[in-house]
Design a protein around this nucleic acid. Structure first.
Lengths: 248, 248
DNA sequence: GCAAAAGTGTTAACATTACACCCATGC
DNA sequence: GCATGGGTGTAATGTTAACACTTTTGC
């Protein structure tokens, strides 16, 4: 049983050879950026949700399939950002360990020991919408970006690279739109930009600039994100598709 | 003889399977952006300089090796920009044509008919420094970006995508530094940005902004780029490594 | 003399930054 | 009453865009 599940649905014959996909899935919850990681019971390492590309799939389709499996969501915002191709990126011993403990029948998993290049994707999902399935042999969990566990292969580097690239492209990446729930406060939106930029932003200037773009609509109901003060709730104006913020 | 050269030095056994590299090499000459293309005598199609990745190479190393072969240059400015992975990106008939006309002995080139994903690289070289080698069976030439011939596979799309990505990243891509010769006029530098942006820029505002960064040093000798008027020559200040232009 | 390329300077509009005061709530 | 989060406004500064006049040279 477990021997089949470890690589399911992949075999040496149905995947594009030597090629994998790894996804850095971000969400935002309680003022913290979170990253989705999973761990198989046979490994001490946590890893990015990833997998292989079928022979008739594009890499975008492979990444979407993999993430739909793990999160239950479809139409996830998903962009490729870098191909990791260093021949030494994965230590073969780590994968031998997998195979040994994975109880693969003899030769069936040998293809797993070859060299793989991996295409990195970043994805944004709304924390509340994700339903993580728990299986004892394959656990998926959110981790605070500032407190990551020890990671498999070069996955720490993949996460670090995704952050650098998102930061550099912040003006044209709709992080707030994709990460915030339907209704949110201005503080929550500001916090997202602060996290990606790695610095604090002036509360008043941020609000003025965002509101001046007209991308938000103010809701009537008061929010309760603050224990002290009711705050104004906003939503994105669905008619506006130009969510660029040239000022970052 | 020719049967060996067509794929040299690649065989099914020494390359990373199902993976290729294609390079969009830009230069700037006589106020025009140029792209390097090559054509084998057995094909009517022109194509991007490309090739495969050896089993012990990274994709960066593969791209650098391929371009050094074609241009005689080393240390070429080279960045990966997108992985093209649509399963239908290359029409198999085009590759069968290659094999047939390529006089490959029987099965030796069969691996060439499998599906390939291709990692796109963009590169910038100085036109004057490139020495194109001419072989009758394998011609390499510069083409004006606005007058490209019919291209192999999805190479037209690869070029178009490279332009879009460079345009979006212009503030942080050192196009002028990599494309201009040692000495150049302000008009030449401006023209480069105009070409990538697809619009004309105010001559005086451009000059003021560029000079205010301090990235250029003015030379004593007068240039002769204009048939009418002597113009000031500039060089990049070699001490300055921060060639970002946040104002584009 | 005219057209084309190049050199130089000013001003108005706009965007950005820095900063201050008030209110509501929980403890 | 005080610490915390949140709402609102203004003034100084910096940046950008629009624009005019002059020079040189080839024809």
């Amino acid at each position: 049983m477990t021997s089949i599940n470890l690589f399911h649905p992949y075999t040496a014959d149905n995947i594009h050879p030597g090629f994998s996909v790894d996804c850095v899935v971000f969400s935002f919850y309680k003022k913290k950026l979170r990253v989705l990681l999973n761990q198989f019971d046979i490994s001490k390492y946590w890893q990015l949700p990833g997998g292989f590309m079928m022979k008739n799939e594009s890499s975008d389709e492979a990444a979407a399939r993999i993430l739909t499996n793990r999160t239950g969501l479809s139409n996830i915002y998903l962009k490729q950002f870098y191909l990791f191709s260093n021949p030494q990126r994965t230590k073969i011993e780590q994968n031998v360990e997998y195979l040994d403990k994975g109880r693969e029948p003899d030769d069936a998993g040998k293809w797993f020991l070859q060299r793989f290049v991996s295409l990195g994707y970043y994805a944004f999902v709304k924390y509340e919408e994700v339903n993580l399935s728990f299986v004892k042999e394959d656990v998926t969990k959110w981790f605070d970006i500032d407190h990551l566990p020890e990671l498999y292969s070069d996955h720490e580097n993949i996460i670090k690279t995704s952050l650098e690239i998102i930061r550099a492209m912040l003006p044209v990446v709709p992080v707030a739109y994709e990460l915030l729930p339907e209704k949110f406060t201005m503080s929550e939106m500001r916090k997202i930009y602060e996290v990606f930029l790695g610095k604090t932003l002036d509360r008043r200037n941020f609000q003025r600039k965002i509101l001046s773009t007209g991308m938000l609509v103010q809701l009537d109901e008061p929010g309760n994100s603050s224990p002290y003060n009711p705050s104004v709730l906003y939503s994105f104006d669905k008619d506006r598709k130009d969510l660029v913020m040239p000022f970052f």
